[in-house]
C-alpha cells in the first residue's frame, strides 16, 4: 500500500485517477482503518486529503456555509454560526462515535462511506446540502442525496472526490433537527433515524419541509409524503400522525442484528414526530 498526502486538489484527483489498483480517499480514517483491519479492505493507495488547502475550513458563502471535506466532527461542533444556522446537521455530526472519533471523523467521509445508517447524511439530505466534487474533468456540484447509491457504493467516478459540502442560507423562522435511535446512549450505530428541516410562516404554519430517514432502506430516504404532512399545518397532532404514518410507510427496512423490521417502522415514526417538534421549537426561537 502507498500513502500520499497531496497539497492540491489537482494532485489528489490525479493520484486517484492514475492509480491502477484500489485507491481510497483518507479523511478521518474512522471507517477506512476499521475496514482495513477487520473488513478485508486492502487498498493500494490512500490519498490523505487533510493537507490540501481549504479542506479544513468552514467558510461563509451566500448566507450559508461551505464545509471543507476534512473538517472533523469536533471542529464542526465548535463552529457556533454553523450550529445556529443548521443545528440539526451539527447535532447529527456530533452523534458520530465517541469524542475520539469526533476528533477525526468527517461529514464527507460519513457520506462517502455510504452506510444507510450514517448519522450526518439524513440531516444533510433534509438540509438539501450540496456536495462539491473535484475530478479529472474539473468541479461539479451534486445534491448530497445523490451521492450514496447503495450500501458502500457512491455515484463518484474514478478520480473524483468531495472537496466541500455547502449548506445554504435559510429564512429566520426555519430550523432543523435530527434524532436517531440507539440501544445505548453512545457508541452505537443508528437502528433508525430521522431528520426534519422546516420553515414556518409568521403564524407558525409550516410552509416548507424536508423529511429524511436513515437506516430503513438501502440509502437514506427523502420522504415527500412526510414533508407534505407537515406543510400547511402547525404540527398539530393530526399532522404529526400523518407524518409518522408517511414515514412508516416509506420505510423499507431489514431485520438484522441491530433491529427488526417492525421496530424500525414503528420507531422511525416516533423519531420523525419528535424531530419535527424540536425543529419547530427551534424555528420558533429563531423567528
Amino acid at each position: 500500500m502507498q500513502y500520499a498526502a497531496p497539497e492540491t486538489t489537482a494532485e489528489a484527483t490525479r493520484l486517484l485517477a492514475d492509480s491502477p489498483g484500489t485507491a481510497r480517499v483518507l479523511a478521518g480514517g474512522t471507517d477506512l482503518l476499521v475496514q482495513m483491519k477487520f473488513g478485508g479492505l486492502a487498498p493500494d493507495l490512500l490519498v490523505d486529503i487533510k493537507n490540501i488547502k481549504g479542506m479544513r475550513d468552514v467558510t461563509p458563502e451566500d448566507g450559508g456555509f461551505r464545509v471543507g471535506a476534512a473538517v472533523s466532527g469536533a471542529e464542526m461542533g465548535e463552529h457556533k454560526a454553523m450550529r445556529a444556522l443548521w443545528p440539526g446537521v451539527v447535532e447529527a455530526v456530533e452523534l458520530i462515535g465517541s469524542t475520539q472519533v469526533q476528533g477525526r471523523a468527517t461529514m464527507a467521509g460519513n457520506l462517502c462511506n455510504a452506510s444507510p445508517a450514517a448519522d450526518s447524511v439524513p440531516a444533510m439530505v433534509a438540509a438539501n446540502a450540496i456536495a462539491r466534487i473535484a475530478g479529472p474533468d474539473g468541479e461539479r456540484d451534486c445534491p448530497v442525496q445523490d451521492i450514496p447509491t447503495a450500501p458502500g457504493k457512491t455515484s463518484l467516478q474514478k478520480g473524483e472526490f468531495i472537496t466541500s459540502i455547502f449548506f445554504p442560507a435559510r429564512p429566520d423562522n426555519a430550523s432543523d433537527a435530527y434524532l436517531r435511535f440507539i440501544p445505548r446512549t453512545e457508541m452505537d450505530i443508528a437502528v433508525c433515524s430521522a431528520g426534519v428541516s422546516l420553515t414556518l410562516d409568521t403564524n407558525g404554519t409550516c410552509t416548507d419541509a424536508r423529511v429524511s430517514l436513515g437506516a430503513v432502506a438501502a440509502t437514506v430516504l427523502l420522504v415527500q409524503d412526510a414533508a407534505n404532512a407537515l406543510i400547511g399545518s402547525k404540527l398539530d397532532d393530526s399532522a404529526l400522525e400523518a407524518l409518522g404514518a408517511a414515514c412508516s410507510a416509506a420505510c423499507n427496512p431489514i431485520d438484522d442484528k441491530r433491529g427488526t423490521i417492525e421496530f424500525r417502522r414503528d420507531v422511525t415514526a416516533v423519531l420523525a414526530k419528535r424531530a419535527a417538534k424540536i425543529a419547530q421549537s427551534r424555528a420558533g426561537e429563531r423567528s
Binding site: G29, T30, L33, V34, K37, F38, D48, Q100, V101
Partner: peptide
C-alpha cells in the same frame, strides 16, 4: 483496534483521538 474502546487514546495537535484509527504516516 477499531475505535470502540478508547484504550489507545492520545492527543494529536491537541485533539483527542484513538491512535488505532490514525496512520503513523499522518502524524508528520
Amino acid at each position: 483496534g477499531s475505535g470502540d474502546c478508547g484504550a489507545c487514546s492520545v492527543t494529536v495537535n491537541g485533539r483527542l483521538v484513538a491512535s488505532c484509527l490514525v496512520l503513523a504516516a499522518e502524524v508528520e
